[in-house]
Structures are given as structure tokens and as C-alpha cells.
Design a protein around this nucleic acid. Structure first.
Lengths: 402, 402
DNA sequence: AGATATTATTCGCATCCCGAACAAAATAAA
DNA sequence: TTTATTTTGTTCGGGATGCGAATAATATCT
């Protein structure tokens, strides 16, 4: 939609103004509901007459419903408008290496039902499973009108083919989810990288009304992913693979990464890095590299650090230090208003944030940065919300012209 | 203009469609001239009737002129349209630490006159000089209508105040060019960082019609600057200081930079770095760190390398290696269609490009990058053209809505 | 001279926003 | 209780815009 080459223009027609204003009105209702037609006119600057026409149309199309009457000291009572959460639903899918979640959300991005199942190891099996679950979900809600399916995947999506590429943690390569899902359900399917989806979810749900147009989401798990919103739009790059800051060298001639490069950021600042930090410390102090102990999980390390385990705490501190190094890179290079950190490590925010802050300050002393580093609310299920935002933005977001 | 907060909306009015289509038509004429009204209709998809109305308006406003008649095997001869290069002028200013250039350009971005003068060391003196030169330029062309003044500066510009901040190489801090220039001339003044201006110039003049919407310009002189175009727009970040990739550490605990950070990219890949490389080699081989020889300039090193001097060649090779390291970062993180290199070093392109290419390939072996690394044409005066593009984009570029 | 092809303009129509007038509804004041 | 005031929401005429068909204006080929 935003792709514009000089052969296919997005010229404006007589309906263009309505299209734009309709999106503005719909987005205002979404972010400020409940509110009256008069409120909309004041907020948008459009005439009340215009607002009436647009809202009536939205009500007819069942995007919006009229609710209770408001109360004012004088004058006619305003009729409040809401998004229609009864009728319109969006299916959000979050694919992760071990488990996949399928959920039904309303227009407010609230989840009505949600279920998860193990991610099959072969992509063909997985697609079969997925279609079955989605079809069951649709059948279970016959009264609902489904607006589309958003999918968040732990890998990169080719901009043209919409096929999944580089899904290192899944072990799949060049897989097409979109076509089979679309043919099976008849719904529009949008696929996006998980970090991009998180970034979208942040400006869409969390920071609504803050006017944030530059934001970076950093997902930290086995690896590190970054999703960048610049000027209010996802930075996808020429082929859709922008944002692989996790695979930028922060240590010259460092360890070899599975991406083939050396010294990648995610080698030093991911959950796996903390585990290696911890195991390195544990084995050296015990002088026994061959112990048969099970590797600790990252959750173990978080728990141990919380309980006062020094080695675990040091492992986290080291991870935080390197997180700071990479975040300094993003702060200096992208200068977003906000960087949102997504991952289990945010449970130890009190421990890691001062370290991150110090490292960033050390590395950009003259550039008095405006970037705020904040943890994502774990309860918000950022990846899943992002997959919902993928569909919402098609109707609520601003269109592009050239 | 693109700043959109939720209190001041860009709602669409009845004139919005015309505004959009007018920009499309004007940009088509700019990039494809000469062409007829019928050509415009075919290219844009608008009706010929609509094109007639728009072009007539553009002719009346003197943006466009009607030129010669075309020739066709059959049918009525088309009347060619051109940008009006006679009447409308743009003043471009390129501020550099040693010299400043003031130029008058036509709507095609071709320079009609151009003069340069030494940059005064005190900012107040400089502004006085500048205003005098600009006023003389305006007086010398009384028949011309001036559309605005674009200024490219070697530093960062605060997004809100439009004041110059961080101009390390100028030694100025927090200077306001815009207000005095605007009050003196009565023209609209746009200020932008030099690397950003170069990036703008590239998509505006050089890559026109290629449909490139993601591009990075890297300016290499005493330091390194980066200007990023993402989704067709300048990446400015929350406060306008995005793009300082020159000050990202590529060597952990490296040398101290004047920015206060350690191991910054520009310490290893700028012209100054090559000079240090050369001098380090020269002194160690001669075993004399105290020789009173004058430091060579970067141009000297380029010349020496060209003449077969091994130490100079090695200094350039080292510079190229580190250039590659930083460009790999941009390739992986931003994934633009094109990275344009601006600077004297492009004179040694044959030497440095293979090194750059190898380093990038080594650092992103699995991400088969689509990014092309190209040298800017030195003759094109990228900074100056960028300052012109700053003004042009206000009339030709796509508007933003939300 | 007539047919054909191509460019450019004209005109009626539909869409859309604006703004003023109006209708509806609720409270305050007389 | 009646009237004035205030606020919400609708209606209607006017102006701007793009569309598409018809028409005018050229130019070449047959």
C-alpha cells in the first residue's frame, strides 16, 4: 500500500478526502472513546455536519456503535460513540519456536479467546495445524465478522513475496504462510517479523495519544530483534530485512555467531548470553567444565539473582552492560523518543536499568539524548497485540500519497 | 509539516485532492520533462480533463511553461510542458568549516550562479557576511521570484527550534541562522544537517524515477555523517539528531573521541583516520616520532597512493576496511536500497570498493543484502544540491496526512 | 476529400467539505 | 409555568474537485 513506484500512482479522487477523514475519525474514536459527534468535530477541526455524515456511515458499516447519553450542565445530551466490539473481530497469531498462540481480539485489541499449541517442527505440519485451529476459531464465533488475520513470526518476511525467510530459531526457510491461510479462510493475512509487530503494538495500543512517531522495540530472548518505527511508519528497508541490529558487531573479532558474522550484539546481550555468562562463571569457580548438571534456564538465572546469587547477578549485570552498548547504538543512530524492551529480562528491570542507563550515558555524553528506555508490560503480550495491530492499521492508519 | 500531534490534525478539505494531484503532476513534469498533457494523463492515471485544469493552473502560477510542439506519426501535435527555469529560483547555501558557498539554482536544481567565501570564525560575523551575500544575490536578479533558502550545515539542527546544535567542526553552539535570514530576506529558510541534505539530494536529483525510498548518504571528511531516508522521508528522530552513526563504537574500548565516546566509527574511517594511519606508519618506519615535517593532507595521501606509495595505499586500505565495518552496520540495520558515499575518498573508489564489499560480505553472510554501495558524483556538489532540495520538497513532495 | 488517430477542452454529474440555518433537547432564569 | 440560553446533532445550499463522455482541434494516411 505504501509502495509507490512511478508507474502506479496513488492519485487523489473525489473520495480521497472522505477516506482520509474517515480514518482520522475512526482513530479518534478508537483512542478517545467514548466521545460524542461534537467532541469529534472539536478534536478534528471538521465541521459537525461532516462528522455526522462520516459517523453515520461508520455506524451503518458496524465499525462504530452508539452508546449511552452523556451528561452536561446545559444543553442537549451528547450521544456517545464506541468502537463496535461485538461484531468485528481480528485473529492474531504469534508463532514462536516452541509454542504458537492463536487469539481472537476485538477492535480495542482486547483478547476474547486465546489458545496455544506446540509449534510443529516441520513447516508443512505446522501450517496444517494452524489452519485447523483458525478454522475452528472462526466456526466457534459465527456471529462475528472477521476483519483479517495478523501473524507475528520469529524471522524476517520478504517484502514482495511475503514469505518467511531467515527463521534461524525455527529451522525453516522460505515458507509461505500467507497463501494457504488466505485460501483456507478467505481472510486477508498480514505477516510480520515479531520485533516489528511489537513496535507496531506499542505505538498502536500502549503509546496511543502520546504522539510518538519514532520508536524502537527490542525483543530479547534467545536472540535479539529490533523493530523500528520512523516517522510513524515501520522501517522495513528495501527488501524487508531492515532492523537486524542484533547481528551487528559490537566486539571487533568477537565470537562467531550462527549468522556467520563475529561479535554480534545478540551474542553478548541475549538470554543465551546470560546463560553462558553464568555457566562460564560456575564452571571456572568449580574448576569443572564437564559437570553433568543441566544448563540453567534464563528464568532460573533471574530467580537466582533475585534470591541473592552473586554469579547469577553478575551474569545479568554483564548482559545489561552489553544491552546498554547496543541500545546506545540505537539511541545515537535512530534517536527514537522511546525504546521499549520486550523479554523476560525486564523482570529484573531494577537491576539492569541503572547499568543500561550508565552505559548509554558514557557512550553519548555530548548528545543529550531524549530517548526513554522503558520495559514493556509483560501482561500485554506484545507480539500477539502486534499481530492484531497489523490488521487494524489497514483501516485506522493514515494512507500514503505521492 | 509532517509533525502530527493529536491536537492539530491534517484533515482533508475539498482542496486536498487537488493539492495531492498537483504535487504528483508537478513532480512528473520535473522528472520526465518535456512531456505533454496526454503523457501526464497516461502516467498519472488522472483524466485528461483533470490534467488540463491542473497544468493550466501551474502555467498561470508560472511553475510550468509551455514549450515546443512534439511530433507524432499521426494526430494532433502535443504541446510540451517544462518547469519554468526562467522565473523561479532557489537559494542554496552550503556552510563548511573553512568556506561557505551561496548559489542560485533553478527549479531543475541547476546552478545559475555560485560564489564562495571564507567562513568567519565567529557565528555573529558569519551571519552578517551571509546576509550580505544573499541580499546581493537577490538584488542581482530582480526579475526572479525566489521560492526560499535552503541551508546545509555541518552539525545537527534541533527539530523544534531549528537552531544549530553540535557543530563540533565549526566550534559554534546553539546558533540560530533561520530567524535573521528570514527577517532580512523575507524568504522561507530551511536548515538541515549536511548528510541529511545529501541524502535528500540523492533521491531528489540523482535517483529520480528509480523509485528508491530507502537510502543512506554517508559523508566522509574530517568526520563521518549519515543521512537516512526511510520510506521516502528523512529519518530525523525525536529531536532531529538521528543519524549520528559516525559516533557509534565499532571498537570496544577504542580511542577516545571528541564526542566523549570511545572507538567511534569516524575515528577509524574518516579522512583524519587515514592521515593518522599514514603518519603512524611513516613515523614507525623512520623511527622518528618528532620529525618536523608538515602533516600530509588527505588529498596528499590520495595522490601518493595513486603514484604507488605503499604507506599511503595501506593507510587508505585500513580506512576502507573500517569504512566497510560501519557500512555493514548500516546495511544490516537499515537495509537501504542504496548507500551513497560522499567525500574525497571516492576518488580512490577502485581501491576501496573491493575492500568495502569484502568486509560487508564477511559481516552479513546469511543476509544476502540488496544494498548497493555507490560513490556520489563529486561534480554534483551534493551538499549544495541538497540545500536546494530542502525547498523543492515543500512544493513537489507528497504531503502527509493522519 | 475522407478516414483515422491523437491531443486538448468543454460540460454535466457525483462526491465531498463548509458554513449557516434549523431542529432537538436540556437547564437556568423570569 | 414560561421563556431564554446552551449544547448537540441534522439539513441544505454553495463551492471545489475528479470523472467520463462528447466535442473540437490537428495531423497523417489512403
Amino acid at each position: 500500500m505504501r509502495k509507490i513506484d512511478l508507474t502506479s500512482f496513488n492519485v487523489a479522487t473525489s473520495e480521497t478526502a472522505r477516506n482520509i477523514n474517515r480514518r482520522i475519525v475512526l482513530d479518534l474514536i478508537r483512542t478517545r472513546q467514548p466521545l460524542s459527534r461534537a467532541d469529534l468535530a472539536r478534536l478534528s477541526g471538521l465541521q459537525r455536519s461532516t462528522i455526522s455524515l462520516i459517523t453515520d456511515q461508520l455506524v451503518v458499516e458496524q465499525w462504530v456503535t452508539e452508546g449511552a447519553f452523556g451528561h452536561l450542565p446545559r444543553g442537549r445530551k451528547p450521544r456517545f460513540l464506541h468502537l463496535n466490539v461485538e461484531r468485528t473481530g481480528i485473529i492474531g497469531i504469534n508463532v514462536r519456536p516452541t509454542r504458537t498462540t492463536v487469539a481472537l481480539a476485538d477492535l480495542n485489541g482486547r483478547f476474547i479467546v486465546q489458545e496455544s499449541f506446540p509449534t510443529a517442527s516441520k513447516s508443512e505440519d505446522f501450517i496444517k495445524d494452524l489452519i485447523q485451529r483458525v478454522e475452528a476459531l472462526i466456526k466457534a464465533h459465527p456471529q462475528m465478522f472477521f476483519e483479517g488475520i495478523g501473524v507475528s513470526v520469529p524471522g524476517r518476511v520478504d517484502l514482495n513475496s511475503k514469505r518467511l525467510i531467515f527463521a534461524a530459531n525455527l529451522g525453516w526457510n522460505d515458507v509461505d504462510f500467507k497463501t494457504p491461510l488466505e485460501t483456507a479462510t478467505g481472510l486477508a493475512v498480514e505477516i510480520e517479523n515479531a520485533a516489528n509487530a511489537c513496535a507496531l503494538a506499542e505505538i498502536w495500543f500502549e503509546r496511543r495519544g502520546e504522539g510518538v512517531r519514532d520508536l524502537v522495540a527490542v525483543t530479547i530472548s534467545e536472540g535479539i530483534g529490533t523493530g523500528i518505527i520512523a516517522n510513524g511508519q515501520l522501517l522495513r528497508g528495501a527488501n524487508g530485512v531492515a532492523g537486524e541490529f542484533g547481528h551487528i558487531s559490537i566486539i571487533e573479532n568477537g565470537e562467531l555467531c550462527k549468522c556467520g558474522n563475529r561479535g554480534c550484539w545478540e551474542l553478548y546481550a541475549s538470554n543465551s548470553a546470560a546463560i553462558r555468562n553464568y555457566e562460564g562463571a560456575a564452571t571456572t569457580t568449580r574448576g569443572n567444565g564437564n559437570s553433568n548438571r543441566q544448563s540453567p534456564t534464563f528464568d532460573d538465572i533471574l530467580r537466582l539473582a533475585e534470591q541473592g546469587d552473586i554469579k547469577a547477578a553478575q551474569a545479568l549485570d554483564r548482559m545489561a552492560y552489553h544491552l546498554g552498548a547496543g541500545l546506545a547504538m540505537l539511541t545515537i543512530g535512530i534517536a527514537p523518543a522511546t525504546i521499549v524492551i520486550i523479554g523476560e529480562v525486564t523482570q529484573a528491570w531494577k537491576r539492569i536499568y541503572p547499568i543500561i542507563k550508565r552505559v548509554i550515558a558514557e557512550r553519548s555524553p555530548l548528545i543529550h539524548s531524549v530517548t526513554k528506555i522503558v520495559p514493556a508490560e509483560a501482561a500485554e503480550k506484545p507480539r500477539l497485540r502486534g499481530s492484531v495491530a497489523l490488521i487494524l492499521q489497514k483501516h485506522f492508519g493514515a494512507p500514503a500519497f505521492a
